[in-house]
Design a protein around this nucleic acid. Sequence first.
DNA 1: ATTTTGTCCTGCGAGC
DNA 2: TGCTCGCAGGACAAAA
Length: 331
Amino acid sequence: MPELPEVESVRRGLQDWAAGHRVIRARVLDPRILGTTSQRVVPPGAADHFVSRITGARLDSVERRGKFMWLPMTVDGAQEPVTGAALSVHLGMSGQFRVHDPSDPVHPHTRAVFDLVPDPSGAPSGGPAAEAPVTPDAPPVAVGGAPSRGVRELRFVDQRIFGHLGIDRLVDSHGYAVPSGAAHIALDPLDPRFDLEGVARAIGRKRSGMKAALLDQGLLSGIGNIYADEALFAARVHPLAPTATTRISRVRAVLEAAHDVMSLALAQGGTSFDALYVDVNGESGYFARSLQAYGRAGSECFRCEGIMQKLVAAGRTSHYCPVCQKAPRRR
DNA sequence: ATTTTGTCCTGCGAGC
DNA sequence: TGCTCGCAGGACAAAA
């Protein structure tokens, strides 16, 4: 389940394989990937529009906030260089980017394919292009059908189609250029500008359980069900602890734990339970073996003699120790 | 207004 | 053996 550490692992892989590359061809195999989780019905022509916008674009870098990822792009095949737009990506539940040789078998859950060639030309070409500009109508390579030398296929594979691809304009959000679709997403705990004290106070103003607060991507981003449970366990805070009455020192401890557990997981390449999360090279992460709470209901707590339990909080199964994570007092 | 619930989607495992 | 059912979960719309 891609949360911050998994998305960051993918981002780093794309930094090597997609940044500094040009899209010479794009295909959408399942247009549903262009819709949102709730707006799965995409208008006819959406796929064509997406393809025409991305084809010929140079992918400049790979950015991330929380679980949202985007690749700012430059299009200089048109009359005027077009900037301020990006390929925006969300992995959802099971989305993954894989780098392949064009001759590799295509996985049945492949939803989109991007043919990439290296394009080291850093800045947008100011004067007359030394090389022929790439346009959607006249791809300069792979004309004869035979794969061009050096072409790599970047494939977006997503079994459950909770993921999303799109082209967004970049807007300002918290001082960063962010795709319009992610402008409402808060900074994540690994962001240098993350304001732990401010977020702790904001949590104190809410009227919900601590678990729900951690999952609120508009408050702080990147935390999903797994790392929420891990952070709460590490800080010994009950998932249903009321945000309004939990001491701010405890809230701070949870936020620090969230930062620490996600840093640790990132160093391990993320958490993989099965083939649903792998990096761009198909490698799994190794943090699953380090989980202290998630998925451990019925087992002995690693910290005390308690037996781990589960309950539903914020509509999500939550794993906790009823001994170390004291239940909130009922009124 | 804020908080909670339901929905989307697929594959897998439990139960009959 | 083969079927149905329930579950998993991120983000957003809808409902409370």
